[in-house]
Every structure is written in C-alpha cells, then in structure tokens.
C-alpha cells in the first residue's frame, strides 16, 4: 500500500472531523438570534430558578465558558480545540451535566445494537445474494426473494412499527420498548444481559430485515460477474464439486467488494439506527437525540452529531486501510 495513499486517506478523515466541527460552530451563528442562549434563558426562567440558580449568572457563565466576548476567529479556534477534546459544554436541559457524560451512557447501547445488526445482516445478506445468483441454490431462496426485496424498500424505523405491533402488541412475545425492564439496575450480570438482549431483538431485527435486501442485491450482481470468470469455468472443467466452487472460488472473490460497500453504507445504517431507537425507546444515542430535539438541547444535538460523524469517519478509515490487506487485487495506482 503506497504511503501517500495512507496519508491522503488520513487527511480526508481530518477534513471530516474539521467539517463536522465547523458546521456545529457556524449553524447556530448563521441562524437569526442565538438559539443556545435563547433556549438557556427560556429554560431557566420557566424553571423559576428553582434550584437556586440565577438566570443572569448562568447565562454569564455560559458566555464566558464559550468566550462569546472574544473575536469570532478566536471563538472558532477555542471551539475547535474543545470539540477535539470531546468537550461539548454543559447540556442545556440537564444544566450542569456535561454533554459528554450524557452521551457516554447511551453510547454502548447504540454500539452494541448497530454492530450486531450490521454484522448479522452483512453475512446473511451476502450469503443470500450469492445463493440468488447460484443456479444450484435451494428453491426457497428464489421463492423468498420478493419478500426480502420489499423489506428493503421500507425505511428501517417504519419496519420497527410493524414489528412492535405484531410481535409485542398483538403476540406479546417481546417488550413494547425500552432497553431493559424498568426498575432493574443496569449491570454486568447474566439476568440483566438476557433482559437487555430480549429488548434489543426487535430493534435489531428491523435493522437486519431492512438492510438484508441491500446486501443481497449487491452480492448477487457481484456473483453474476464472478461466475463468468475463467477460473470458475476452469474449476468446473476440473470437475470440482459445486459446493466447493461456490464457497472457495466464487463466494470468496465476490465477497471482498462487499467490504467496500460496507464502508460506504455505515453512515446510512447508523442514521437509520438512530431512528429505529426512537421507535423502540431504546436507551441509545437515537433516543437521547430525540429527547434533545424535543427540549431544544442544542449542545447535546451538536455533540451527538459531531461524535457520530467522527465515529463513522474513523470506522470508514479503518475499513479502507484494512481492505488492501484483505484483498491483494486492490492497488492504489492512478487510473
């Protein structure tokens, strides 16, 4: 792998980080009025300063905290520096709590959900798509394809509605929402883990069902191409068993471009997962974002969007850099 490609790719990652931070800096300043300040004042006056907090004092502290008295370029540099350190300031709706703390609690939930669902969907979808293109595939594969492809046309979270209605509301097999039984204390014990798993099956299922078709279609296209390759014809001519040709010759070669597609789709999947969480009231980043939007908690909204964009950028970077190690055919020469 040429070193200038690695440097360029890392450079792109930093551009993403910079752009995400800059958007968060610019947008509140471009909008009429100062949304954060307005919200803060409104919040504190509405609360009547019940906790003994003086409105003016808090606003002054807030302005000093963000250095709003400084010239704009200095504000910008300070903002970038804080953001890089994951310091997004205090949450507005839960005032002195730093944004990072509220995000920290939600992060593992989202990570577990998205990672599990994506891996399962990626593997099953790819295998299914490969079978769709394989002449010797079992009959049920072809019979089920209209169903799977229709699922792909439903946005993730809308599928969630249907799943909740059927499996939770009508059948009562799964809880109606949430991440764990109310009243239990989150912790690393078997009971809690099993409970959390039971709550996450439907959210995960809606992510899996909705993305399965995407992977299947991509993989099917790739398999059709691979089947025309000389080495598959040679393998057939040698009289190898079809199963062996399928797994060792066709599938392996068609699989690798799927990893590139994974890098591209990750951002999309996470955006979808955010919405799925809202439908299920799953205690991850999505639900946090929903609450923040409803209470106009801007610092939390900006913090979450920055964090997710950076996380996806990082994941894509790792995938892109790991890909040539997996697939020696990829060369980063100029076209």
């Amino acid at each position: 792998m040429p070193i200038d490609y690695v440097i360029k790719r890392i450079g792109v990652f930093f551009i993403i980080v910079w752009a995400a931070a800059t958007v968060n800096f610019l947008i509140p300043r471009l909008s009429p009025g100062n949304p954060i300040r307005d919200q803060l004042v409104q919040q504190l006056t509405a609360g009547g300063g019940g906790a003994g907090v003086q409105v003016e004092e808090v606003v002054a502290a807030y302005e000093a905290r963000f250095g709003l008295d400084l010239p704009l370029w200095q504000q910008y540099l300070n903002f970038l520096w804080d953001t890089i350190q994951l310091d997004f300031g205090p949450s507005i709706s839960r005032f002195p709590t730093p944004v990072w703390n509220t995000i920290q609690d939600a992060l593992p939930w989202t990570f577990a959900l998205v990672a599990t669902a994506t891996i399962i969907s990626f593997i099953l979808g790819s295998l299914y798509g490969a079978l769709l293109a394989w002449p010797g595939a079992p009959r049920f594969v072809h019979a089920s394809s209209p169903f799977i492809l229709t699922m792909a046309a439903v946005p993730y979270y809308l599928l969630g509605f249907i799943l909740i209605y059927i499996f939770s509301f009508r059948m009562g097999w799964f809880p109606l929402g949430g991440g764990y039984q109310l009243g239990t204390q989150p912790g690393f014990n078997l009971d809690f883990m099993l409970d959390a798993m039971r709550h996450s099956i439907l959210p995960a299922l809606s992510l899996i069902l909705a993305t399965l078709g995407f992977w299947a279609l991509q993989m099917r296209g790739m398999m059709v191409t691979v089947q025309g390759e000389d080495y598959v014809t040679l393998a057939e001519a040698k009289g190898l068993r079809p199963r062996r040709i399928f797994f060792r010759y066709a599938l392996r070669n068609a699989m690798l471009p799927q990893v590139t597609a994974l890098a591209l789709a990750l951002g999309h999947v996470v955006s979808g997962a955010v919405l799925v969480e809202i439908v299920f009231g799953y205690p991850g980043i999505g639900t946090l974002l929903y609450q923040a939007v409803r209470s106009f908690d801007y610092t939390v909204i900006y913090g979450i969007s920055f964090l997710i964009i950076v996380a996806i950028g990082l994941a894509t970077l790792i995938l892109d850099l790991a890909l040539p190690l997996l697939d020696p055919r990829i060369k980063y020469s100029r076209e």
């Binding site: 995400a20 591209l264 990750l266 951002g267 909204i301 964009i309 996806i312």
Partner: peptide, 17 residues
C-alpha cells in the same frame, strides 16, 4: 466524503436550529 458521513445528522443540526 459526503456519502460516507451520516449527513442525516447534519440535517438534524440545521433543522433543529
């Protein structure tokens, strides 16, 4: 770059502002 980042969250930032 715009395809890989979850642009949806930028829209959330804009729309909520």
């Amino acid at each position: 770059v715009a395809l890989t980042i979850p642009g949806f969250l930028i829209l959330v930032v804009i729309a909520s502002t």
